[in-house]
Amino acid sequence: MDAPRPRRDHAGMDIERLATLGAIFALAGAVKGVSGMGLPTVSMALLGLVMPPAAAAALMVWPSLATNLAQCAGPSWRALCRRLWPVWAGLLLFTVFSPLPDLASAGRGPHLALGAVLLLYGAWGLLRPALPRPAPRHEDWLGALAGAVSGLLTAATGVFVLPLVPYLQSLRMDRDELVQALGLSFTLATVALGLVLWQAAPQAATPDATDCGVALLAAFAGLWVGTRLRRRLPAPTFQRALYGMFVLLGAALLGRTN
């Protein structure tokens, strides 16, 4: 008489998991819709609280790639390729061939690394330090260095915002060019991260089809909502709340004891 209960409990757990994934990716998509970035960072921050970072990154890859591809479109891609190729070369090489422990490593290392990056990124966003614009003659080596460090952190945490985003913002591009540069950079970082996950743990790099479908649909639904909210939300207030959330989530990950 009691045999069916485990199936009902299992079904309930599946529904709860899918609802959690849907809520996380809807929020992450909404953040991207409002700010033009943030889906990988928000999704990794929240998923990192409920699953191993490698599994979280595997789920994040497809929604991130799909939403970033649309952001790559624009008239400046040739100029961006000429200007940013050192950034992208460093990003790709040091993500795929990182000497640091990757997301699939055992222990708390990936959680601690992710927590530290989120905390630093949130603090940077709240403080908003004025970065000097690099001299044109230094852009190649500074870009390669920013890309290399970003690649190392991408492989270790699944988050590719530091120091990539501050560096791109320091170049003082116009808004449309910056959005396209971020889209191209994030797309390359997502592809490189997918390769790292596939090499390190092929099974973990292939998430459940249902989970992946829910993540994609929720991310695009959130993106649609966020795009329509973009002009209604005060940008400074939204950004402070977002970076404050990263600080809290980073601290929560660092404070986990197991």
Rank of each mutant, 00 (worst) to 15 (best):
Asp2Leu: 13
Ala3Pro: 06
Arg5Met: 13
Pro6Trp: 05
Arg8His: 11
Arg8Tyr: 13
His10Lys: 07
Ala11Met: 13
Gly12Glu: 08
Gly12Lys: 10
Leu18Asn: 07
Thr20Pro: 01
Ala23Tyr: 02
Ile24Val: 15
Ile24Ser: 07
Phe25Asn: 07
Phe25Pro: 08
Leu27His: 03
Gly29Val: 05
Lys32Phe: 05
Ser35Arg: 12
Met37Asp: 00
Gly38Asp: 06
Pro40Asn: 07
Thr41Pro: 01
Thr41Met: 14
Ser43Ile: 09
Ser43Ala: 15
Met44Leu: 09
Ala45Pro: 04
Leu47Ile: 04
Leu47Pro: 09
Gly48Ser: 06
Gly48His: 03
Leu49Glu: 06
Val50Ala: 09
Ala54Asn: 05
Ala57Tyr: 08
Ala57Asn: 07
Met60Lys: 01
Met60Pro: 00
Asn68Gln: 14
Leu69Lys: 06
Ala70Ser: 14
Cys72Leu: 12
Ala73Met: 06
Ala73Asp: 04
Gly74Arg: 12
Trp77Tyr: 08
Arg78Asp: 10
Leu80His: 11
Arg83Lys: 08
Leu84Thr: 05
Val87Lys: 11
Ala89Pro: 00
Ala89Leu: 14
Gly90Phe: 11
Thr95Gly: 13
Val96Thr: 13
Val96Met: 04
Phe97Val: 06
Phe97Lys: 10
Pro99Asn: 05
Asp102Phe: 00
Asp102Lys: 14
Leu103Arg: 03
Ser105Arg: 13
Gly109Glu: 09
Pro110Asp: 07
His111Val: 02
Leu112Phe: 12
Ala113Ile: 00
Leu114Thr: 15
Ala116Arg: 01
Leu118Ala: 04
Leu120His: 00
Tyr121Ser: 11
Trp124Pro: 00
Ala130Cys: 05
Pro134Asp: 12
Pro136Ala: 13
His138Ser: 14
Glu139Trp: 07
Glu139Pro: 03
Gly143Ser: 07
Gly143Leu: 04
Gly147Cys: 09
Gly147Leu: 08
Gly147Ala: 08
Ala148Gln: 05
Leu152Cys: 03
Leu152Thr: 13
Leu153Ser: 11
Leu153Phe: 14
Thr154Asp: 02
Ala156Val: 03
Ala156Arg: 03
Ala156Tyr: 03
Phe160Arg: 00
Pro163Gly: 10
Tyr167Leu: 05
Leu168Phe: 09
Leu168Glu: 01
Gln169Val: 13
Leu171Tyr: 10
Met173Arg: 09
Leu178Pro: 01
Val179Gly: 02
Gln180Glu: 14
Leu182Gln: 00
Gly183His: 05
Val191Tyr: 10
Leu193Tyr: 12
Gly194Ser: 15
Leu197His: 11
Trp198Leu: 15
Ala200Lys: 11
Pro202Asn: 10
Pro202Val: 12
Gln203Pro: 00
Thr206Cys: 11
Asp208Ala: 12
Asp208Leu: 00
Ala209Gln: 10
Asp211Ser: 14
Gly213Arg: 05
Gly213Asp: 05
Leu216Val: 10
Leu217Met: 11
Ala218Thr: 09
Ala218Glu: 04
Ala219Gly: 03
Ala221His: 02
Leu223Asn: 11
Leu223Cys: 01
Leu223Asp: 04
Leu229Ile: 06
Arg231Trp: 01
Arg232Asn: 02
Leu233Thr: 06
Pro234Phe: 06
Thr237Ala: 15
Ala241Leu: 15
Gly244Pro: 07
Leu254Glu: 07
Leu254Gly: 11
Thr257Asp: 08
Asn258Cys: 01
Asn258Pro: 00
